[in-house]
Write a protein that binds this DNA or RNA. Structure first.
Lengths: 353, 353
DNA sequence: TTTTCTGACGTTAACGCTATCAGAGCCCCA
DNA sequence: TGGGGCTCTGATAGCGTTAACGTCAGAAAA
């Protein structure tokens, strides 16, 4: 046993250890052929493919995608950034996005900002570190650094939910302002005069703020002589529970109100149910409107007037858009196709107002 | 300009292009120092760190984690497998898991099976391809191949939500059977005699099936002479909408029923609200019970008797467990600590029964 | 028969980073 | 004053895969 002939032992700690080389040896082919069998099975002969498949089974090989990413500079990965998964609308958007891209072999990285703009930039940076082939992000308001990161990443970026004047790349969403305008108009048309906006506005939730702004703009247009009634609920949580507190504030600050406009179905349901519990007639005493058309909105008693938002469609369309853009060879990014897709919204008039 | 001295141009197409070498050159240090600055900032001198930070800013460098994974065989990634993100409970579990592991620098890969066991194995394989450092998976029922994959992966695996006799590695959850037993006992103690189980059972949802089994077992124990009343709702969707259909079936098939037991708050709320709409007294005519203690359960009128499940705690504990296990040097996996964490459940008695 | 083409596979050289070891400079204490 | 231990930095050798190109046999075309 000569020293020189001893197999070089790796000093480095190894994790599991079956590599493509092992599979290749087992199947009696080169690594490249194994690689081809994995990525383009049609380019290897059927018998060879069989050999390789058997070898993979026997060795329990699992393709190391990290190495694959490095060598091919394609990660087959899409990154998605949302405020939180806890809100069902975003979870649904992500689910739809996932359905679409997973069908084409992509995997999904999700990151959530918890509505904190300052976290977003770090999150984007660390997600981009994985070299995703595409990026989906909820919202169109970002820090300068975040925008710069996304623009320089060299991958398609789709912003969702909001619409802004200058999207980074593509955007898909609807106008929160217009939606609130539709609500206010509807209330005015059904005889309401003293509307109160009492939406819970979380710091960092620019969509909710746009709804408030939409409320103010519409109110000022319809009732130019009045100051729009706003109740500050920024200290409250976006829960049904806090709907009771919202109701109390409205009654205290605007005892003459005849409609309560919320920025989410959650709060709206909370207000509505609190009102029912306390024997306040809805829509007799107040009209109540929500936002989002959550599942319970049509079922609670009285059912909730609200804005239906195509959450799933946003995710699905974003996925399709990304697939489309990712399929183009890098550098050959087609600049055709609309920059903006407006998926619209729908005013759903129900019993509550 | 001699031919031999010309810099070797890469024939290969390059994506973006700023590498650590560029940063190192800009900062006038070696790549290794840049690497250290990124992963262990405390081990480089403050002035050097400053130089490197400036160089990173100037070059707009984004750390390539794919290469990092390959070189270090740590991906700083956790994979999570759930049935679907569309159900808020799983979204919440994932959110909590994410909160815990992201705080320690990990990123989350999510994959969903859509309640299809056959997809699970492929999903696991492709997620393992990313070489995650840990894996969280909802459920304890898996195919043989899936189990084999997870066992061979050489990483900590936490199964969540269910409890099984033989976990793959660690498990955290509660007994669905016991929870249903608690509901049946409660109904019996409050004078109900003719309970009907009408839960919507999706194929692949073993948890819902366990609840039905729990119902059957408890009923047979309490009323040994009777056949447990089951209404088949396997063709219905798990939506509030279909609660109306559930109610009709119960009334048709078991007109003498005095309690309707559901396997989800969603259906329960649907049944309850359909009953209210039709003027059927709850809990006068029927008691109605749900499962999950969703947000609306305590707010709808009448409020819903249900089982509270610590969704968030499951995610958070799973995250902590994974962090714990991942921090141990590979190979040095400690085998101490409990294999099973039972997070329990709570029967919440409200107005509906 | 020679040439061209095609399909199937192999060889080589990266991809961009980090583990490891080694070395340089510095301070401290016997 | 000479080590012994620090702290900080650099050179080297991979990590496991794939792109690009090369080879080679056999079919098709000339």
């Amino acid at each position: 046993m000569s020293e020189t002939k001893a197999p070089r032992r790796k000093a480095r700690a190894r994790r599991a250890g079956v590599t493509m080389a092992d599979v290749a040896a087992e199947a009696g082919v080169s690594m490249q052929t194994v690689s081809r069998a994995l990525r383009e099975p049609r380019t290897v002969a059927p018998e060879t493919l069989e050999l390789i498949t058997a070898a993979i089974r026997k060795t329990h090989y699992v393709h190391n995608l990290a190495a694959s990413v490095l060598a091919s500079s394609r990660s087959m990965t899409v990154a998605a950034i949302i405020p939180t998964l806890s809100t069902s609308v975003f979870a649904e958007t992500i689910q739809s996005l996932s359905d679409v891209v997973v069908a084409k072999g992509y995997q999904l990285f999700v990151g959530n900002t918890d509505y904190r703009l300052d976290r977003e930039e770090d999150l984007i940076r660390s997600l981009l570190g994985r070299r995703p082939d595409g990026l989906f992000i909820v919202g169109t308001r970002h820090t300068r650094g975040a925008v710069s990161l996304m623009k320089r990443a060299g991958i398609p970026v789709v912003e969702g939910w909001d619409l802004s004047r200058r999207p980074i790349d593509r955007q898909i969403g609807f106008s929160n302002t217009d939606a609130m305008d539709a609500i206010v108009r509807h209330l005015a048309e059904t005889g309401r005069r003293r509307l109160v906006f009492a939406g819970v506005l979380r710091a960092g939730d620019s969509r909710a703020r746009m709804r408030r702004d939409g409320f103010v703009a519409a109110s000022e247009r319809i009732w130019p002589d009045e100051t729009p009634r706003l109740v500050d609920c920024s200290d409250l949580a976006l829960t049904m529970e806090d709907g009771g507190a919202v109701l109390e504030r409205v009654e205290r600050e605007h005892p003459d109100a005849d409609a309560i406009v919320l920025s989410s179905d959650i709060t709206a349901a909370g207000v509505l149910l609190a009102a029912m519990r306390r024997g306040i007639a809805v829509p007799g005493r107040f009209a109540i409107t929500g936002f989002g058309d959550f599942e319970f909105a049509r079922h609670i008693i009285p059912s909730l007037t609200t804005i239906a938002v195509p959450t799933r469609r946003i995710g699905a369309e974003a996925g399709r858009l990304l697939l489309d853009l990712m399929s183009d060879a890098a550098g050959t990014r087609r600049e055709d196709g609309p920059k903006t897709i407006d998926v619209g919204f729908e005013l759903i008039v129900r019993e509550s107002g």
